[in-house]
Design a protein around this nucleic acid. Structure first.
Length: 464
DNA sequence: CGTTCCACACCAATAAGTAA
DNA sequence: TTACTTATTGGTGTGGAACG
């Protein structure tokens, strides 16, 4: 029987990442698969409405019938990709074969994001699937740092201890090995450099019947210190995995009793791993009954759709994307080099209270080489379309600082892309495209030519 | 519809390294 | 030893989405 590969993700699916996932899957499972140029195509139904499923083409395998991608949302701490290998569309009760976490952040940029902040996801996913393969996929945009920091080596060793596979990054066989004992882990962490004065160092203190781990969890009047939630989850899960079954206590956390709430991610992890908060009572966790659900609400459904249609059905391309809101984004310069965007025009002025220094960034920037146009796109839900139109006025900074210097001969236009409602017409001229909740593709009165060409080619593809 | 949570990356402080 | 530079650490800033 031939099965399909289902890729469920919260993000915009990227060709190179899909390529890597497919390569990994075929290699691990000894499924021969020839991968050509990957394209990601929206599937239209008989009425030419979007079915909210994308199909991946550009591969050949006699054990994978088709590859589908669907947009989902996690209920809490969620990995970037779930992979299912089965005939039918995944349901909540189905078990994925892989959970994959992807990051663009190297050790050189931040230890928090490179290792620690992601780690809690691998601890959390164990609540739902015991048999899943866990993968940390680095898709670095910049060159990997030559020597690794102690924090990075420690974090990587912990991940390996938990059985997480590391991909896309050179591993050093001397340093990057799983811990074998509780004491080895403790000695490694405690011999690391101390942080500056005023910071709470993460230290591990073991006695006969108790291990204490110090670390701050308090932030902005709540238990929301993400980097340390990750670090402490990772350390505690590793200690449990290595066989420590006695008391495990977090000290120096800075929390009060009122911060311990059952629906908090770390409270759930603490309950599962039997971790105590020094000086505080634990409360009953409210663990979510499902790990994910199909996305039917978010504005990103609209911008991801238009992005993929343009990428796969026109010669146009994206210069910048920001579908996830706070994910790291790179602007592509005229020489094709990705550069990170500055958040402020003048950092000093911003710090002194001048909010005008914030560089407002669009959700998506597309380039149309045929028409010599660059399109700045603001994505919104249909009901918030007025806000989207309002935000179009904020793009002077990015256009002057980045777009015009790099693409001086291009005309710059601004437009809003919407998702939602059951409307089949757009009145506002500022709106270029609407994907409604029934999958209707609605072009605006003054839609950019790139959108019109993309939609036309998509329709032709499915109707020829 | 204001508040809380979450995810991402940035960055001040300072220990460690290095040249004189 | 001292003055300066580089590397490393964990706390902080920010904005979107979920929550109640």
């Amino acid at each position: 029987m031939t099965k399909n590969l289902w890729i469920l993700t919260e993000e915009r699916p990227k060709r190179d990442v899909i390529h890597n996932i497919l390569f990994k899957f075929s290699k691990d499972n000894e499924i021969p698969c020839f991968i050509d140029t990957i394209r990601i195509l929206p599937i239209l139904n008989n009425n030419n409405d979007f079915s909210f499923t994308y199909e991946v083409v550009g591969f050949k395998s006699n054990k994978i019938n088709q590859i589908f991608i669907k947009t989902i949302s996690g209920q809490s701490s969620f990995v970037d990709f779930l992979i299912f290998y089965q005939e039918n569309e995944p349901k909540i009760e189905d078990t994925p074969v892989y959970g994959i976490e992807e990051t663009k952040t190297d050790d050189a940029e931040s230890r928090n994001t490179g290792i620690f902040q992601r780690a809690s996801k691998f601890v959390y996913i164990d609540f739902f699937y015991t048999d899943i393969k866990k993968v940390m996929l680095y898709s670095l945009q910049i060159k990997q740092k030559e020597s690794q920091t102690q924090t990075n080596i420690f974090g990587t060793k912990c991940l390996l201890t938990l059985g997480v596979e590391i991909m896309g990054k050179k591993l050093d066989p001397k340093n990057h090995t799983p811990f074998k004992t509780v004491d080895e882990l403790i000695d490694f962490k405690n011999s690391m450099r101390r942080p500056p004065k005023g910071n709470v160092p993460i230290l591990i203190n073991k006695t006969n019947d108790k291990i204490e781990v110090s670390g701050r969890l308090f932030k902005s009047d709540s238990l929301s210190h993400d980097p340390n939630i990750g670090a402490l989850s990772l350390i505690c899960a590793s200690l449990r995995k290595l066989g420590w079954d006695k008391k495990l206590v977090i000290t120096e956390h800075g929390l009060s009793q009122r911060h311990i709430k059952g629906n908090n991610k770390f409270v759930q992890i603490a309950s599962k791993l039997n971790i105590e908060f020094d000086g505080l009572q634990r409360v009953a966790p409210k663990i979510k009954d499902s790990y994910w659900h199909y996305e039917k609400e978010g504005e990103k459904l609209g911008t991801i759709f238009i992005h993929l249609v343009v990428e796969n059905f026109t010669k146009g391309n994206s210069l910048f994307e920001n579908h996830a809101g706070c994910e790291k984004g790179y602007f592509i310069t005229k020489s094709g080099e990705p550069i990170p965007l500055e958040k402020y025009q003048d950092r000093e002025k911003y710090k002194n209270g001048d909010k005008n220094q914030i560089v407002h960034i669009p959700d998506l920037i597309l380039i149309d080489f045929d028409k010599s146009e660059i399109i700045n796109i603001e994505g919104k839900k249909y009901k918030f379309r007025a806000n989207g139109i309002e935000e179009l006025n904020n793009f002077d900074a990015i256009e002057n600082s980045y777009i015009k210097p790099n693409y001086p001969k291009f005309k710059i236009i601004r437009t809003v892309v919407l998702y939602g409602s059951t409307e089949e017409k757009i009145i506002e001229i500022e709106v270029g495209f609407l994907l409604n909740e029934n999958g209707k593709l609605v072009l605006g009165i003054k839609a950019p030519d790139l959108f019109k060409v993309a939609i036309k080619n998509l329709l032709d593809y499915w109707n020829s």
